[in-house]
């Protein structure tokens, strides 16, 4: 049974950068088009492997909703060699794309439920894909609460959209920064400080949390205090995917391959997993 090389999961497509925008000192936005404007056909919460020939490959969450057609968006934090090189690129440049990979957010399961989104730092990037998907399909979901946090006012992401969301009467939005800066008029404090201020009916609420590893422990404790069931707490875990297809081993969390079985998990799936949180 000879397999064609084109069946290889390592086949890279040329993604053309349509435009870019500096979002913060560390994060840059990229809109990318696949050859023939092929649809990426991702689920919110999935990731792609971005290739820079000669530099390497890095896993990056898709930040746009699948409802957006013709191109997709990435917001990339400059953290390593690939993302560093990517930050030097602009409109008209090309990057390699593999994917989408992984299990995204369970959008079907969320339908009909009230939603509580909790995002911290660059966790707001994959969460942005889900939030915009939900807002594009607003009637399929119940009440929407969005809590966002980040380190400082300068590191806030998607600020323009956040301002628009705040003006909508059909969603509740609250945000905070860990440390205030000059001229900051918003809230100061950890993301957990926003949770008591949200009105939820725990039985009909799904909480979706994406943030740095340290955030999960504390946020989940708060949500359990509010009596949201384990199976209705959804997280997305960060690991270093290298192959994206459940082979190379780098992203493994005990028995799970984060790139295939995740990155999205419900809390009841990982509650007893000694390597997850």
């Amino acid at each position: 049974m000879t397999q064609s090389l084109l069946d290889s999961p390592y086949v890279v497509k040329a993604g053309k950068i349509l435009n870019t925008k500096e979002m913060t000192n560390l994060e840059k936005y990229f809109a990318i088009e696949l050859p023939g404007q092929e649809d990426l056909a991702h689920d919110p919460g999935q990731f792609v492997m971005v290739s820079l020939p000669g530099v390497g490959e890095a896993p990056i969450s898709v930040s746009s909703s699948p409802t957006k057609k013709g191109s997709f968006e990435l917001v990339v934090r400059r953290a390593g060699s690939v993302t560093g090189a990517m930050h030097k690129l602009g409109a008209g440049d090309t990057v390699g794309i593999r994917g989408p990979f992984g299990r995204g957010f369970p959008t079907k399961m969320l339908e009909g439920f009230d939603l509580l989104f909790i995002g911290g730092g660059c966790g707001n990037i994959p969460l942005h894909s889900l939030i915009t998907f939900v807002l594009d399909n607003r009637s399929r979901f119940g009440k929407i609460n969005i809590l966002l946090g980040c380190k400082t006012p300068e590191t806030r992401l998607f600020v323009d959209e956040l301002t628009q969301w705040e003006q909508r009467s059909d969603i509740f939005v609250d945000s905070t920064v860990d440390q205030a800066g000059p001229g900051w008029k918003g809230k100061v404090g950890l993301i957990t400080s926003l949770i008591p201020g949200v009105k939820i009916d725990p039985k009909r609420t799904y909480a979706v949390i994406v943030g740095p590893p340290i955030m999960y422990k504390f946020v989940i404790q708060e949500l359990l205090k509010r009596e949201i069931p384990d199976s209705q707490i959804v997280v997305s875990l960060e690991r270093h995917m290298k192959c994206g297809v459940g082979k190379c081993g780098h992203c493994q969390i005990a028995q799970y391959y984060c790139c295939q079985d995740g990155p999205v998990f419900t809390y009841n799936e990982i509650r007893n997993n000694y390597e997850a949180l």
Partner: peptide, 16 residues
């Protein structure tokens, strides 16, 4: 069977 994936450039700095 765990592995890493690495890019290596040729000396012409175009192909690799």
């Amino acid at each position: 069977y765990c592995f890493d994936i690495r890019d290596e450039m040729d000396l012409n700095l175009t192909t690799g």
